[in-house]
């Protein structure tokens, strides 16, 4: 990766596993890929029931300033999170969204956007709950920042015991879908 850090915001509503997806991305990058990742999250009243978010900074060097103001990449899993966080996305940033839950408007110019029916994929796997891991897979494929191996290790280490296989399948689904999209658009 380039020397400049990559700043990511992940948004959704409480209960979707937004924070866990941030933890998995940060853990993969820092623990298993051996670089640096700082995760912060909103702890205020806004995090209790409405649009919640996790911010991750991925960097080859230790991260000094810990907060994300203008993310390079925005991952959204709810319309409210899209409305709240999309105005902060960098001008040439990347938007990843769950296409059945988010309807982007045309107001943001210059960004690249990629969508995925992650809820449907999760339902096909038997658990709607793994939507967030499908999104992690999708993010890994599009961003090309995490090694596939590191992402898988981070998932195995972070999800509840007994659900590892299901979550790895969810990751694979999102990852393969993302890779196909990238191949098509390049």
């Amino acid at each position: 990766m380039s020397k400049a850090p990559t700043e990511i915001r992940i948004g959704g509503f409480g209960g979707q596993g937004v924070i866990l997806s941030g933890i998995i991305i940060g853990k993969a990058f820092s623990i298993y890929d051996g670089k640096h990742a700082t995760l912060t999250q909103a702890f205020g009243p806004e995090a209790r029931g409405s649009a919640c978010s996790a911010q991750v900074i991925l960097s080859a060097e230790p991260v000094l300033y810990p907060y994300v103001a203008k993310p390079d990449t925005l991952v959204v899993m709810s319309q409210e999170a899209y409305t709240k966080f999309s105005p902060d996305l960098k001008k040439d940033g990347v938007l990843l969204y769950e296409e059945d839950l988010v309807q982007p408007d045309d107001t943001i110019k210059g960004i690249k956007s990629y969508s995925i029916p992650a809820t449907r994929f999760a339902e096909e796997l038997g658990r709607k709950l793994v939507l967030n891991i499908v999104m992690v897979g999708f993010f890994s494929a599009i961003s090309n920042l995490l090694s596939e191996k590191a992402a898988k290790k981070a998932i195995t280490a972070s999800v509840p015991k007994g659900t590892e296989e299901l979550n790895l399948k969810a990751f694979k689904k999102g990852y393969e879908y993302g890779k196909k999209l990238v191949a098509r658009s390049s």
Binding site: T38, T40, P66
Partner: peptide
């Protein structure tokens, strides 16, 4: 402080 307390890193 709250920032360090709630910040996740390696």
């Amino acid at each position: 402080d709250e920032c360090v307390g709630h910040m996740t890193e390696k």
